[in-house]
Design a protein around this nucleic acid. Structure first.
Lengths: 205, 205
DNA sequence: GGGGGTCTGCACAGCACTGTGCAAATGGGG
DNA sequence: CCCCATTTGCACAGTGCTGTGCAGACCCCC
């Protein structure tokens, strides 16, 4: 057993997890959601939430930690030794897409909470990876862009958010979205559309 | 004199304008800035702000109206009868870029305030234009993207924000940013990098 | 040197939220 | 069937913000 829980504390664990899940969803579409909103949405009383997390800050912290962890894992797992920067980017996007919602929340909160700097710090390694790959691609001529690599990384991120929002608004089928996002990221980096499409089709099976 | 004001009301007008300016800046980097923060930043007492705007809502409303107006004007002025969708997009981006900061605030607030729907409504015409041009480009084969036109419009917008943020963070020279953004938007839409570059260079002089 | 509009500096009520305390209810496992 | 952790339901203090009222200071123009 992952946690040696007996009896009531099993329920407690389930509650804790459900609170986290629902908090994620709730904060996603309203970053200023109150503890009460979150508690109600989780089918629980506000007091109970405070039983699991000492403060709003702590709740969000836990959320952020989880998201960063998942994100890093997905990214690392995806870019197992690929020589081609374009393919690396394609795979990374597809992998990250799997946990897209969490990633989106993460940024949404990053722009808000006082913890801004803390989050940016925790994300730094991930971003550095991305920038490195982009830089390599630009150097090798695989990518063509008037933007420097770090700026291209910003574009990269925001582009993902745009596609996520398109999915949320029903403009796009969720199953196709990941591939479409990957293609868009690549073409935005200057990879010819035909190449990008082929590459993504190849990476996604 | 633009407004035929005599005496004290001239000062009042200047204050009103300064409050709007500083509120824009303040809300930009903290969408939840309080009336007190804004007032202090404007070198004025909170009570004075309420003298000019009956409520926080009203202040933001005025801000949004101004931004939408400027935005619409820039966009309309830029796309004076251009047959080529790609060129239309390039010009539009360059024009919008001029008032980029306001545009960015607009969206930042759109995701927050209760006025969400109101803002989206006001922006609807502008967005429709954009989607129409993108759709035409996709139909004509000038653009190539796995994304449908409305989703591409989202990408379009978010991409501009990304470049703006890059400028804010000093990753990019502000004077080059507009052209770089335009090129990126076009390539993201599937226009070959070389064409996009040439097109933007042509449109920007 | 007033007069009229403007800014200031308080004071106040109302509201929503956070975090905490405590006694009672609940419900599953030994 | 009873125990024990958990959950509930309330109550409370503290805080920060909004919007308003009002008297007095301020200052430019006539």
């Amino acid at each position: 057993m992952t946690t040696g829980n007996t009896g009531a504390s099993a329920r407690a664990d389930a509650n804790r997890r459900r609170i986290l899940d629902v908090a994620l969803a709730e904060l996603l579409h309203d970053p200023d959601a109150s503890m009460d909103q979150i508690a109600r949405a989780a089918g629980v009383v506000r007091r109970t939430v405070y039983g699991h997390f000492p403060s709003r800050e702590a709740l969000i912290g836990t959320l952020v930690d989880g998201a960063v962890e998942a994100l890093t894992a997905a990214d690392a797992g995806a870019r197992r030794e690929t020589a081609d920067p374009a393919e690396a980017v394609a795979r990374s996007v597809l992998a990250i897409w799997e946990i897209a919602d969490r990633y989106r929340l993460l940024i949404g909160l990053a722009q808000r909470t006082v913890t801004v700097q803390g989050i940016r710090d925790r994300l730094a390694p991930l971003r550095e990876n991305k920038v490195a790959v982009l830089q390599r691609g630009l150097d090798e001529g695989v990518f063509t862009s008037p933007l420097p690599a770090p700026a291209l990384a910003y574009v990269h991120e925001q582009l993902l958010f745009a596609v996520m929002e398109a999915v949320n608004d029903g403009l796009l089928d969720a199953r196709e979205a990941g591939r479409a996002a990957a293609v868009s990221v690549l073409t935005a980096a200057g990879v010819p559309a035909s190449e990008a499409t082929a590459l993504v089709a190849g990476s996604s099976r």
